[in-house]
Simulated scan of single mutants.
Amino acid sequence: MRTIKRALISGGAGFVGSHLCEQLLRDGVSVVCLDNLCTGLRSNIKLLEEHPDFRWVDHDAVEPWPELGDFDLVAHLACPASPVDYAELGIETLRVGSEGTRHALDVALAKGARFLLASTSEVYGDPTEHPQRETYWGNVNSIGPRSVYDESKRFSEAITVAYRRYHGVDTTIARIFNTYGPRMRPDDGRMIPTFIHQALTNRPLTVSGSGQQTRSICHVTDTVRGLSALAHSHHEGPVNIGNPIELSVWNVATKILESTGSSSPIEYHDAVIDDPQKRCPDITLARSELGWEPLIGADEGLASTIEWFRSGLAVSALESNHL
């Protein structure tokens, strides 16, 4: 396993990014977080800022990056990741996947650092292969409403591989499947925070389409363990990081209703354009090469996430970010 003493994390104030910063600090790594809070929250890193080995740099990843010292790891997580965000910030999403990824790779090249790209299961599109293996090329609409995110990540993967091939950068790619947990924004727009917020406020749970489309949900603690394992490895990726237990959207909604004790009804709305009907990772590679697999089941993970939302932390974090 490689040694990492100092890491640069773009998007480190985001949902997954802040948890990764926290995990690395816990492991004794000095962390620099680069984030302009476009979709991240200052509250996500407020406690981390008290740590002597943590530094936040307010900077837009699409602009040339400042000199920040030497690093053993550059992890590029900066990107609007929720449908609500990238629908509003389409050009910004494409730019952070292209220009932002190039800047991150240039830092890794200059510093001789390991480079970790946080990619997504969305590169598989609405898959015709099930479950999805890393060798699957995907079924993606390159001009659809979701394309700003899908193609941003697909380009990010392509330029990452190009820097490895042409410049010898030590790169790896994680394809992250649906991740959830504390620090998700209640207005995030993704399935789980939306359902939880609706259930806790006694509003109907809005399910798009039939509700029979499937997702595999992975608690953020497990996702971050996978990212850390990949960063510390010598594997070039891509590697699926997700939970191979497949659940229907309707099943997730009913689990949340049961766990919250809410009497909210389920309302069915028109299906979202290009919404994947099947989503489930094959994690054979992660198990064999990283010794990683998720440990937190859906019932346990949803219960802890609901408790965090119920405590009011989600709403107060969102409000404090706009003060």
Rank of each mutant, 00 (worst) to 15 (best):
H234E: 14
F195G: 05
D53A: 13
D35M: 10
G301M: 06
M191D: 06
L302E: 06
T194N: 11
A81N: 07
R133E: 07
R203I: 03
A13P: 04
V123M: 02
R154Q: 05
A61G: 07
L48F: 12
S30D: 14
G90K: 12
Q277Y: 12
E92Q: 10
Q198V: 00
L116Y: 01
Q277H: 12
T135H: 04
G28D: 13
P83K: 12
R2F: 10
L89S: 02
L290V: 08
S43I: 10
H130M: 15
R26P: 05
G12Q: 12
G138I: 02
W137R: 12
G226C: 07
G112Y: 02
G138P: 05
V84P: 00
C21F: 08
K255T: 13
H19P: 05
L323T: 14
V224M: 04
L8W: 03
R26T: 13
W292C: 09
L318P: 01
A271V: 03
I256H: 07
P66V: 10
L109P: 00
M191H: 06
N178M: 08
V29N: 11
R2V: 14
D150Y: 14
L47M: 12
N36I: 06
K46F: 13
A13M: 11
H322L: 15
P80G: 05
H51I: 06
A162Y: 15
Q198T: 01
T260G: 11
P238S: 11
L8M: 10
V224F: 01
V16C: 12
I256Q: 04
H219W: 11
E246G: 05
A113N: 00
V148M: 15
C38M: 07
I306N: 07
E67S: 01
G90M: 11
I159R: 04
